[in-house]
């Protein structure tokens, strides 16, 4: 379990990294926290000719509030997100999700840019980015570019990123007032990738749901937003029956796979159970906030 030979570069600036990557593109891989890439190298599932280590690009490690939302540098470590007061205040659902990402040793190294670019269908960050309508901002030799998180993930371990594109930051737009959120996950052990995870935001005004968002991980080839379920909730008065129907619909609207750990049926069942829990919880949290 040793990687095949590669050349190693360690640029000091984003500009340098962009140039290095542009020159090698298809044969090169960016190295961030290494928590997903290094196992792939060690199994020789990936044999890039060059690694471009971006860990010195301190300009990519930041958290900044912006118009009620958050800009998160691509090199921000999972542990920084997990413990950030700004994240907890503005996007509690993200703090909640981070506690489910691996264990501390991995969270100390892993980065948000790496997690999004790696695009594991069971990972929490891609799913929360999808839930929160994140903008994923990148740089390449051709200049800056912005992707909508909902169009970013194309399948297991694949995204729309071009070979020479570097994720530089993620922007989470502000949540509307009177929004509650919740996250729930089922995994075999604490810190494992999700067998199924569901997160929701619920916004109310005048006793009615004005908007609801529901995202799932682990139940499809990529993180999904369940548009149909969201539509079924919008404009409705919140009650147990509504949630029950929405949860059932959530289970029916995913198309999961069977693997060693769980069958498609079980995953579909879990999506429904977790959807019921997060919708109820998200709604309960608004009430508390408003009281």
């Amino acid at each position: 379990m040793k990687p095949a030979p590669f050349e190693y570069f360690c640029p000091d600036s984003l500009d340098e990294a962009v140039v290095l990557l542009a020159g090698r593109a298809a044969e090169a891989k960016l190295l961030a926290g290494g928590q997903s890439l290094v196992p792939l190298l060690n199994f020789r599932l990936l044999q890039p000719a060059a690694l471009i280590d971006i860990n010195r690009l301190s300009e990519l490690a930041f958290l900044a509030e912006d118009r009620g939302g958050l800009r998160i540098g691509a090199l921000t470590r999972h542990h920084a997100l997990e413990t950030s007061p700004a994240v907890a205040a503005l996007f509690p659902v993200l703090s909640e999700a981070m506690a489910h990402v691996a264990h501390l040793a991995v969270r100390n190294r892993g980065t948000i840019g790496g997690s999004l670019a790696h695009a594991d269908p069971a990972a929490e960050l891609p799913m929360v980015a999808t839930l929160l309508d994140a903008e994923i901002r990148t740089r390449s030799a051709a200049g800056p570019h912005t992707h909508d998180a909902r169009d970013f993930f194309t399948g297991p371990l694949s995204t729309v990123l071009a070979d020479d594109e570097i994720v530089t930051e993620v922007f989470l737009p502000a949540l509307p007032p009177r929004t509650g959120s919740a996250f729930a996950e089922f995994s075999l052990r604490r810190g494992d990738f999700a067998i199924a995870a569901v997160a929701a935001t619920v916004t109310v005004a005048d006793g009615r749901i004005t908007a609801a968002r529901l995202a799932v991980a682990g139940a499809d080839e990529r993180p999904l937003r369940l548009d149909e379920v969201e539509a079924s909730l919008a404009g409705q008065c919140f009650d147990a029956d509504l949630v029950e129907t929405a949860a059932r619909l959530a289970g029916e609207s995913v198309n999961p796979f069977t693997d060693l750990r769980a069958s498609a049926d079980y995953r579909r069942h879990l999506v429904a159970v977790l959807a019921r829990r997060v919708l109820t919880e998200a709604h309960a949290r608004i009430a508390v906030g408003a009281a």
């Binding site: 089922f186 075999l188 067998i195 750990r261 769980a262 069958s263 049926d265 079980y266 069942h269």
Partner: peptide, 11 residues
């Protein structure tokens, strides 16, 4: 008795 087996058993 993995969660999957338990799920089938309970179902």
């Amino acid at each position: 008795m993995t969660p999957e087996r338990l799920f089938r058993l309970i179902t």
